[in-house]
Design a protein around this nucleic acid. Structure first.
Lengths: 186, 186
DNA sequence: GCACCCATGTCAGTTTCTGTCATCACCTAG
DNA sequence: CTAGGTGATGACAGAAACTGACATGGGTGC
C-alpha cells in the first residue's frame, strides 16, 4: 500500500465536476476541489495545468478514437467517407456515456472559461484528424477542410445528442448532419 | 483638455499588442501594459474584462460586417450564396488591414490563451450569422450549419491570407475555400 | 457658482498558479 | 537488515490576475 490513497487524479476530476455542478465554476476554488479530493491545492496543480483542465481527460486518448478510424479506413475511401467512418467510431466510443456526457456538457456550457478550453480541444482534434488524412495521402488543404467538416459535424451531432433525455445513436446523428452539410453545398 | 489624455482604451490596446510582440504574452504583465499606456492597472480592468480581451475589439461591430451582408442578401439567395456574400463583405472590410492583421495573428498564434479567446469569438460570430440566417427564414439547423461553414471557410481563408507577405484579395480566397468545400462534399 | 457626473487613482484583499524544499513510504542493492 | 534512491505529496512563500470599496478632481448643466 502506498503512503497515500491512490487515484488522486481521478478523485480530483470527480470532485471538480461535482462542485462545478453544485456551486458553479467561479464559486468553486481549487482549494475546495483539493479538499474534497483529500489532497492539497499544490497537488491539484501537479495533476492539472490549470483549473479548467481538470474537466478534460487525456486528449491523445480521445483523439485516437477518430484518428485510428481514419487510419483504418479502406484505401479507396474518399476523404468524406473517411470522415463518416471516424464519426461512426466516435459514436461507438460514446455508447453508455450519455449520462456522464450530459452532466459534463451542462457544466461546460454554463461557463465561458470552460467553453474556451473545449474549443481548443476541438481544434486540436481537427489538427490530429487532418494529420491522419495527410498520412493517407490527402493533400494538406483538403485534409484541413475535411477535418474541420468532421469536427463541425461531430460537435453539432453531439449537441443534439446530449439535448435528448434518452441515449440515442450518436454516430447515426453525426452521419445525418454530414448529409445535411452535403445538401447545403449542393 | 480633459483631466486625462483621452483614448485610454486605444492606448491600452496598442501598448498590449506591442508588448506581447516584444516580450511575449506571458512575460508581459497587465501593470506593464498600463504603464506604457500611462494609466494604472485598475484602469486596464475597467476597459477590458481580462488580460486577453485587450486584443479583441468590439465584437458586435466586427460581427455586423457579416450579419449585415447576410441581411442585405437578395431574398432568393440560397444559404450558401448568402454565406458567399458575407465572405465578400468581410474581405472588403479587411482591405488595407493586412499589415495589422499579420502582426496581430502572429501574436495570437503564439499563445494558447489567446487562441482560446479567438475561438470563442469565432463561435459567437457563427451564432450571430446563424441568427441572421434564421431572420431570413432559414430553418435553425440549416442556419447553424451554414454559419459554421462560413466561419470555417473564413478562418481557413484568413490563415492563408495572413501567411502571404503581400496583401491579396481575402474575399476571393474565401470564395475559393467555399468551392473547395463544395468539391469535397461531392 | 454650485452640485453632480464619471473616468481615473488608491488600496486592500482573494484566487490562481509557480518555485523550492522537506517528508516519508516503498523499493532495490549490498 | 540496513542504506540510499525514488516519487508523490505537503508546506510555504510569492508573483500576477482580478475585484470591491472609496477617494479625487476636472467637466458639465443648471
Amino acid at each position: 500500500m502506498g503512503r497515500w490513497e491512490p487515484g488522486a487524479r481521478e478523485r480530483l476530476a470527480e470532485a471538480a465536476l461535482e462542485l462545478f455542478d453544485e456551486r458553479g465554476y467561479e464559486a468553486t476554488t481549487v482549494a475546495d476541489i483539493a479538499a474534497r479530493a483529500g489532497v492539497t491545492e499544490r497537488t491539484f496543480f501537479r495533476h492539472y495545468a490549470d483549473k479548467r483542465e481538470v474537466l478534460f481527460g487525456d486528449p491523445a486518448e480521445y483523439n485516437a478514437v477518430f484518428t485510428d478510424a481514419v487510419a483504418a479506413a479502406p484505401a479507396e475511401a474518399s476523404p468524406l467517407d473517411t470522415a463518416a467512418l471516424a464519426l461512426r467510431a466516435a459514436g461507438e466510443w460514446f455508447v453508455g456515456r450519455h449520462p456522464y456526457a450530459r452532466r459534463r456538457a451542462a457544466v461546460v456550457g454554463a461557463h465561458t472559461a470552460l467553453q474556451e478550453r473545449e474549443l481548443v480541444k476541438q481544434l486540436h482534434l481537427g489538427e490530429a484528424i487532418a494529420a491522419a488524412l495527410v498520412a493517407r495521402g490527402v493533400p494538406a488543404p483538403a485534409a484541413a477542410l475535411t477535418a474541420e467538416l468532421t469536427t463541425v459535424a461531430f460537435h453539432q451531432a453531439f449537441t443534439r445528442w446530449v439535448a435528448r433525455d434518452e441515449e440515442t445513436d450518436l454516430g447515426a446523428i453525426a452521419i445525418g448532419v454530414l448529409d445535411e452539410l452535403r445538401a447545403l453545398t449542393r
